[in-house]
Amino acid sequence: MFRGTALATGSLLLLLSGCLTGCATANAEGTHVGYADSAGPAVIGTDGSAQSRVVAALYGELLTRAGQKVRTANVSYASPIDTAQAVVDGRISIAPAYESTLLRAMPGGQTLPGNMEATLSMALPPGIVALPPAAAQGGVVLAVTNSTARKHELASLADLRKTGTGLTLGGSATGDPDAPSVAALKKTYGVTLTQAGTAGTSETATAPGAADVLVLRSTDPVITRDGLVVLADPESVVPPEHVFPLISAPAVDLPGRTALARVNSLLTTAQLARLTASVEAGETPGRAAKAWLRAKGLSH
């Protein structure tokens, strides 16, 4: 489990405190080394998802171009929590992480409303840093078909109040820990929906019998393919899941952190969805990452 010790607010200029000498950990092969004596490449870890692998490829390309040696871990982890734990344990140096998913694994962390950066920094153990997040989110969204949006003039979850009691809630991400319940939507937005099943997978989101309001992963290709309208969530009933680099502070130098920060404002949820879809369709994460970075002017 994560250790809930306090850490000063994370930023690109945050340096390791209290572990500059003799602080031991384990590398990807299980050999214990001291942080101060570790001169090897930064080790990037991922879970098995296309999304994690392509984001890690972006990080690897940016770090390499900043002059930092990197390599990919020789194991694939089961989930974002497992990759984060591997960073904390020192088995890897860096991994894509997601805000609310990470916080759920940290017992006793104090949440500061509206300040996720400070919340994470207080919850993480010394030497582990949450760098600023990208604009892209990898969590849950609620969406409707274009025809439903036009019929009821829907742009946000608050607009659902206008529809009365006839709409159903369902979708492929209904069982996700961040998926809002009918009760939560009622409490936050005064919306009355009826819980449907899990219809609304990538194959059936617009099929007859699908739920009216679909609970989907933000990078589900069905959103773009079927032209779904993602409803704004002004009251944040769905917790934030922006993707960010979780790093071991001694393993990523300041030029590397600065390079990673360049992706923050450029990587949107829609672009992350396209990158993920391209990898799921067979493109290698490295190739997809290089093409995206070139298109954004971040590489030659």
Rank of each mutant, 00 (worst) to 15 (best):
Gly10Ser: 14
Gly10Gln: 07
Leu12Ile: 15
Leu13Phe: 13
Leu14Met: 00
Leu20Ile: 10
Thr21His: 12
Gly22Lys: 11
Ala24Asn: 06
Val33Asp: 00
Gly34His: 13
Ala42Phe: 15
Gly45His: 03
Arg53Cys: 05
Val54Thr: 13
Ala57Asn: 03
Ala57Asp: 00
Glu61Thr: 04
Leu62Glu: 01
Arg65Glu: 02
Lys69Cys: 09
Thr83Glu: 10
Ala84Ile: 11
Ala84Asn: 06
Val87Gly: 00
Ser93Asn: 15
Pro96Ser: 12
Pro96Ala: 11
Tyr98Cys: 00
Thr101Ile: 13
Leu102Ala: 11
Gly108Trp: 01
Gly109Leu: 15
Gln110Ala: 05
Gln110Gly: 04
Met116Leu: 14
Leu120His: 06
Ser121Ala: 14
Val129Cys: 09
Pro133Gly: 05
Ala136Leu: 11
Gly138His: 08
Gly139Arg: 11
Val141Phe: 10
Leu142Asn: 01
Ala143Tyr: 06
Asn146Pro: 08
Arg150Thr: 10
Lys151Asn: 11
Ala155Glu: 13
Ala158Lys: 09
Lys162Gly: 12
Leu167Asn: 03
Leu169Glu: 02
Gly170Lys: 04
Thr174Pro: 01
Ala184Thr: 13
Thr198Trp: 06
Thr201Gln: 09
Thr206Asp: 04
Ala210Val: 06
Ala210Asn: 06
Asp212His: 04
Arg217Gly: 08
Ser218Leu: 09
Val222Asn: 02
Thr224Leu: 12
Thr224Lys: 14
Gly227Pro: 05
Val229Glu: 01
Ala232Met: 07
Asp233Arg: 11
Val238Gly: 03
Pro239Lys: 07
Pro240Leu: 13
Phe244Tyr: 06
Phe244Ala: 00
Leu246His: 00
Ala249Phe: 03
Pro250Asp: 03
Ala251Lys: 12
Leu260Ala: 04
Thr268Trp: 13
Gln271His: 06
Gln271Met: 08
Ala273Gly: 07
Leu275Asp: 01
Ser278Asn: 08
Glu283Thr: 14
Arg294Cys: 00
Lys296Thr: 08
His300Asn: 15
